[in-house]
Design a protein around this nucleic acid. Sequence first.
DNA 1: CAATGATCCTGTCCGC
DNA 2: TGCGGACAGGATCATT
Length: 267
Amino acid sequence: MPELPEVQTVLDGLVRSIAAKKFIALKCYYPGTVITDPEIGENPFPAGLDGFERRGKYILLHLTGGHSIIIHLRMTGKLVHGREDDEQNKHERACFLVSDSEALHFIDPRTFGKIVLCRTANLERYIPALGREPLSKDFDASYLAKVFSGRRLPIKSALLDQRMIAGLGNIYVNEILYRCRINPDTPAGELRDKDLKAIARQTKLVLEEAIAKNGTSISDFRRIDDKTGEFQNFLQVYQKTECPKGHAVHIKRHGGRSTFYCPICQK
DNA sequence: CAATGATCCTGTCCGC
DNA sequence: TGCGGACAGGATCATT
């Protein structure tokens, strides 16, 4: 499930493989996968890459000529660098044609992923309001205190809310709470300053470590060259039966999502 | 407004 | 061998 480190890994790979290329076309093979801004008049292609960024789990590609592309992989989306004449994958939902007869195939079995092509001036219309970037300097305990203030929802659910923190998903939230020794049911607004400091610090550490290891490959996630990440080898509770101290890992649900935690380590 | 639940979608896995 | 059902979950929408 692509979360911040996986999205960053995909973006880094994408930029390495196509930075010097021109985008020639964007083809859509599944209705709804590609969303086109109605204010796009003329054909935006061909266009070069004029800049790129990641916001939360969104990939933003800014093109020469005043257009931008937003890519969200959702759960099973992946981008694979290949050739224009590659045989179409069974789950290929869209495809960027780039110069020198190359291609970026957007493969997404569960079809939740989206690609938006819009005028750069209209970009914000297509991206929801997101919380602070966890790797930015302004992500700290006082920010968490502000957004968690008065909130009774479990910290597990709060950390998944993209309006509070941009980019965390189920895997890293479980790992962060274990490392902080915080019980996932603790109401977000009741956390003390030392817990908020621990969350801010461990969030950065886990994400940086995961990015350094090219993300976590549970089931679908692959890098753009189709290689797997390595962070799954360093998970401490997610999909584990025992925590590093040998205690049994428990599973419960918060809002339909599995929570893995150690009731002994996490009070 | 806050919190919870349903929804979308298909591959995979499990029990029978 | 195959069938039904549960499960995976990011974001959005509906409900309480």
